[in-house]
């Protein structure tokens, strides 16, 4: 089934949630796991990683990825936004 095109904010949200999920289960987040969760091509995912790192939402140390406080805040805000949009019947 063809997947609907995701908005950039949603892509960031999916990536950050995947990192959180991976850390919760395996204590570390690996790019291959995140790629599996987010269903993104490796190149695109690495581009998004660069962007997220530039925005201070993740940091990478020797191939492993960790989410920062700013990244967690983004997840909260995005959750809130989606809830608000859904509740408003939009």
């Amino acid at each position: 089934m063809k997947q609907e095109k995701r908005h950039k904010l949603q892509l960031f949200y999916d990536i950050l949630c995947a990192i959180e999920e991976d850390v919760m289960h395996n204590e570390v987040a690996k790019p291959t796991h995140i790629q599996h969760f987010t269903r993104l091509s490796y190149d695109k995912m690495m581009n998004h990683f660069d962007e997220l790192e530039g925005k201070g939402m993740i940091h990478r140390v020797s191939g492993l990825i960790a989410i920062t406080g700013k990244g967690k805040k983004f997840i909260e805000q995005y959750d809130q936004l989606i809830n608000l949009i859904e509740s408003a019947g939009l």
């Binding site: 909260e76 959750d79 809130q80 809830n83 608000l84 509740s87 408003a88």
Partner: peptide, 14 residues
Amino acid sequence: YIMHSVSSRRKMEI
């Protein structure tokens, strides 16, 4: 009320 409850519900869940 809906707008307020959506925000506060999310905060509680978080």
